[in-house]
Structures are given as C-alpha cells and as structure tokens.
Amino acid sequence: MDFYAYLLRCADGSYYAGHTDDIDNRMAQHATGELGGYTAKRKPVELVWCETFPTRDEALAAERQIKGWSRAKKEALMAGDWARISELARNRQGA
C-alpha cells in the first residue's frame, strides 16, 4: 500500500498540506467539505503536488515538514525546483 503527502491550493490562494492512504477519496472529501476544518471553508481546492511514500510515517513526516515551509518554498516544490528549495533552506538557516 502506498501513502501520499500532498499539497492543495485553496480558493483563497493559501496552501494546505496533508497525507493519506487514498488520494482520490481524500480529494473527494476535501471537495465536499466532509473533513471540515481549514479546507472546508476555502473550497474549491486544487491538488498541486503529491508524492508517494512506502509508509504512513514517511508521508506524515513529509506533511509536517512542508507545513513548516514558507510559501516560496512550497511553490518551488510544486515546480520541482530543487535548487530553489535548497537555496531557500540555506537562506532560512542563515537568518
């Protein structure tokens, strides 16, 4: 079984990071507002990044890491710009 970490763009332009073992079902839940909380008040949402992981713990760790990232770093992740992600990480460490 695969597990997923994912990033959504909400209608208000904010980003939401999460994890799941069924990305299609989770997207349906976000779309209907079934989960409540953050995304239910910011529909519609769009899946902008998703990665598979072999374990739930790894997917959860990725979600937690991404939640701590700046908007610029999340956007670099969506673009697959690993050099920019690394640059932004260095800038933050030097701050």
Rank of each mutant, 00 (worst) to 15 (best):
R56T: 06
K41N: 10
T39D: 04
K43I: 14
M27W: 09
S70Y: 07
G37R: 01
R71Q: 08
G37C: 11
P54L: 03
E51C: 07
W69E: 03
A28C: 00
K73N: 06
Y38D: 10
T39A: 12
R26P: 02
W69R: 13
D22P: 05
R56Y: 12
P54E: 13
L60S: 12
I66T: 05
T52D: 09
K43V: 01
L60P: 05
A28K: 11
D21V: 01
D22H: 03
R71I: 13
E58N: 05
K73M: 15
M27T: 08
T52G: 08
D57Q: 15
E51R: 08
Q29Y: 00
W69H: 02
K74N: 04
L35I: 14
D24S: 08
A61C: 06
C50A: 10
T39E: 05
N25E: 12
R56V: 11
R56F: 11
S70I: 04
D22R: 04
T55G: 07
L47N: 06
K43T: 03
R71L: 09
G33T: 11
A61K: 10
T32A: 15
M27I: 02
A40P: 00
P54I: 06
R64G: 02
D57K: 13
N25S: 15
E58A: 10
K73D: 03
A40C: 09
R64F: 07
E34L: 01
Q29E: 11
R56Q: 13
A61R: 05
I23C: 09
D24C: 00
K41D: 15
I66C: 02
R56N: 12
R64D: 06
M27V: 05
A31R: 11
A28E: 06
A72C: 06
L47H: 10
A59C: 08
